Amino acid sequence: MVNLIWAFMAIVGIVYAMFNGTMEEVNKALFESADEAVTLSIGLISILVFWLGIMKIAEKAGILDILARLFRPVVTRLFPDIPEDHPAMGYILSNFTANIFGLGNAATPMGIKAMQQMKELSGSDTASRSMITFLALNTSSLTIIPTTVIAIRMQYDSAAPTEIVGTTIIATLISTLSAILIDRFYYYKSQRRK
């Protein structure tokens, strides 16, 4: 559906430019944007590779295991339907750890695997309580170190690219607590209706 919306917007813009006589400006903007996108992507790749390397070092050093053990009591309370030794719990913890470090690209495959494991666990085609909670937490932008945003700010020569870390932590706390409260509110509301 989103692809159709983007295609519709592009077609409307091109048709409008044709009738308005600004097709040359559209072509110029198109090629300049494509060039800038490639440059930005190459800059982001270097930062993401660096942080993924740091994550690999942290994994080999056992830091990720420590973080997983630290988060495990909280995660087991958030997902009471999932047994502690189930593979979904490991994927959830890995997803949260990657998201906390702002590595959304690295967190996505783990999130997909976690959802697949939770679907198998529920044995249903409808979203389970754990799947809804997981989606709400991922949507709430669970990030402490926004590496991608820092990389973009560095790419555009920001004077202080890391100054957003403090506000990111505050925003993450508020959005994550809100996601948990809203998730629990609607869960208990649906339970009372049964």
Rank of each mutant, 00 (worst) to 15 (best):
L78W: 03
F79N: 04
P80T: 03
D81H: 15
D81L: 02
E84R: 15
E84K: 15
E84Y: 11
H86M: 05
H86G: 01
H86R: 08
P87D: 05
P87V: 01
A88W: 07
A88I: 04
M89G: 01
I92E: 04
L93P: 15
S94Y: 02
S94W: 00
F96V: 13
F96H: 13
T97E: 02
T97N: 11
A98E: 04
I100T: 13
F101G: 02
G102R: 02
G102N: 06
L103E: 09
L103I: 12
L103Y: 09
G104Y: 04
G104P: 07
G104A: 10
N105V: 09
A107M: 10
P109T: 00
M110Y: 09
G111V: 00
I112H: 12
K113D: 00
A114R: 08
M115P: 04
M115Q: 08
Q116L: 15
Q117E: 14
M118Y: 08
M118F: 09
K119G: 12
K119V: 08
L121D: 00
L121R: 00
S122Y: 06
G123I: 05
G123W: 03
S124F: 02
D125W: 00
A127V: 05
S128M: 11
S128A: 11
R129M: 10
S130Y: 01
M131F: 08
M131E: 14
I132H: 08
T133H: 14
T133I: 14
L137F: 07
L137Q: 00
N138K: 03
T139G: 14
T139I: 12
S140A: 15
S140L: 06
S141W: 07
L142P: 04
I144G: 02
I144H: 02
I144L: 13
I145H: 07
P146L: 04
T147D: 04
T147W: 07
T147G: 07
V149Y: 11
I150P: 00
I150C: 06
I150Y: 11
I150E: 01
I152W: 07
R153V: 04
Q155N: 11
Q155F: 10
Y156E: 01
D157F: 12
D157T: 10
D157H: 14
S158C: 08
A159W: 04
A159Q: 15
A159E: 10
A159G: 10
A160T: 13
A160M: 13
P161L: 11
T162P: 03
T162K: 11
I164E: 02
V165K: 12
V165E: 08
G166V: 12
T167D: 07
T167Q: 08
T168S: 05
T168D: 07
I169D: 01
A171G: 11
T172S: 14
S175V: 10
S175R: 13
T176C: 09
A179T: 01
A179D: 02
A179R: 01
I180M: 09
I182K: 01
D183H: 15
D183L: 10
F185K: 02
Y186P: 03
S190G: 07
S190T: 15
S190Y: 12
R192P: 00
R192T: 05
R192Y: 05
